[in-house]
């Protein structure tokens, strides 16, 4: 194993220059706009098609607009951003690639399913810290209508959703990272391993991802020698109601007692209970927009000092699940700290 000062334990990286989030933006769909965080988003589009010909193009518009708004919020021009890291849920990450085509920023396309937001933050922070690119734009997005068609059924197909099913968030979030600047800093992060405990039910993503989230938390604590008490809050991406319960159970088995008091799930934040989303929200856009609409404001206003933010992804493809494969999960963790 490579031993450097920038790497502790097995999976954790230290970012000595403390890259920070200097600006953010989130653009979401109408249903998300009606949710409890609606007023915190930069833009709520009222048409899920965004005036485009297809929902895929709409997803790309939302992604691009989130990036453009973030650049504007940072008071920059497109040309000043040195790299864009991002991804979405579409096949071959079409929304991110098409956005990068129009933005003209050097582009790293990422696919981590719903874990894409922390994957891009972690890699972006490492690029900044290493001095390769600065500033770096990290983004992720998803769209309910495109995810339904790709992973489930056509929109007008009449079928029931199981209670454990989750609702893909229509929205995108973009976050600008710069070396040694910003109110909220990223001092370290933990890269997740791909964990699979044999879940096959594609309508129970929370259960498929919870083992990965538990594994990443345990490794993070082991690598850093920290305990839960060192954090004000653990925020997961989209475990939903079922996955959150399983996360507590799995951590409990390993002697780490996490509970609802110290844990928030973006999927449970973005929608109201009466919005009929069953086990909660999901999708790359979920963690990306809730970071803008809930986590960063709480850190900036001083409610929290240090947060472990961890988006979780279910790495299934329609092909793998049709061939009977189980669903692998992954979770990447970034530590978010308010600059004193």
């Amino acid at each position: 194993m490579l031993k450097t000062v920038k790497h502790i334990g097995e999976q954790t990286v230290l970012l000595e220059s403390m890259p920070g989030i200097i600006a953010s933006a989130a653009v979401v769909g109408p249903k998300e706009g009606k949710g409890p965080l609606g007023i915190n988003f930069d833009e709520v589009v009222d048409d899920p098609l965004c005036g485009q010909e297809s929902f895929e193009m709409a997803e790309h518009m939302i992604f691009r607009r989130a990036c453009e708004k973030c650049i504007a919020n940072a008071g920059m021009e497109k040309g000043q951003v040195q790299a864009l890291l991002g991804g979405d849920l579409l096949n071959q990450i079409m929304a991110a690639s098409l956005s990068a085509r129009e933005l003209g920023i050097p582009f790293f396309g990422l696919y981590g399913a719903c874990s894409t937001m922390t994957e891009s933050l972690l890699l972006g922070a490492m690029l900044c810290d290493g001095g390769y690119f600065d500033p770096v734009l990290c983004a992720a997005g998803s769209h309910f209508c495109t995810a339904e068609r790709q992973y489930r059924f056509p929109l007008e197909y009449g079928c029931q959703r199981t209670p454990s099913a989750q609702w893909t968030v229509t929205g995108a979030g973009a976050h600008m990272l710069a070396r040694g600047r910003g109110k909220v800093r990223i001092p370290m992060g933990t890269v997740g391993r791909v964990i699979d405990l044999g879940v096959t039910d594609a309508n129970n993503m929370g259960a498929a991802m919870a083992p990965a989230a538990a594994d990443t938390i345990l490794h993070h604590l082991l690598d850093t020698g920290r305990t839960l008490a060192d954090y004000d809050q653990f925020v997961t991406g989209d475990l939903g109601a079922v996955g959150s319960r399983l996360l507590y159970d799995l951590l409990g088995k390993n002697g780490v007692e996490l509970s609802g008091k110290k844990h928030t799930d973006c999927g449970l934040m973005i929608f109201d209970k009466d919005q009929d989303v069953h086990a909660g929200g999901s999708g790359c856009g979920c963690a990306a927009s809730v970071l803008r609409g809930y986590i960063l404001p709480n850190l900036e206003m001083g409610h929290w000092k240090r947060v472990a933010f961890m988006a979780t992804g279910a790495l299934l493809s329609t092909t793998s699940s049709q061939q009977g494969e189980t669903i692998p999960g992954v979770a990447h963790l970034v530590v978010l700290e308010r600059e004193a």
């Binding site: 029931q160 199981t162 209670p163 454990s164 405990l197 044999g198 879940v199 129970n204 259960a207 083992p211 079922v242 319960r245 399983l246 159970d249 799995l250």
Partner: peptide, 22 residues
């Protein structure tokens, strides 16, 4: 064994559809 244990945990916390109502 781990997978079987986990399957039981999942079954315990996953809400099932309402059979009678459905």
């Amino acid at each position: 064994l781990l997978r079987k244990q986990y399957a039981r945990m999942v079954e315990k916390v996953t809400p099932s559809s309402k059979l009678l109502e459905g």
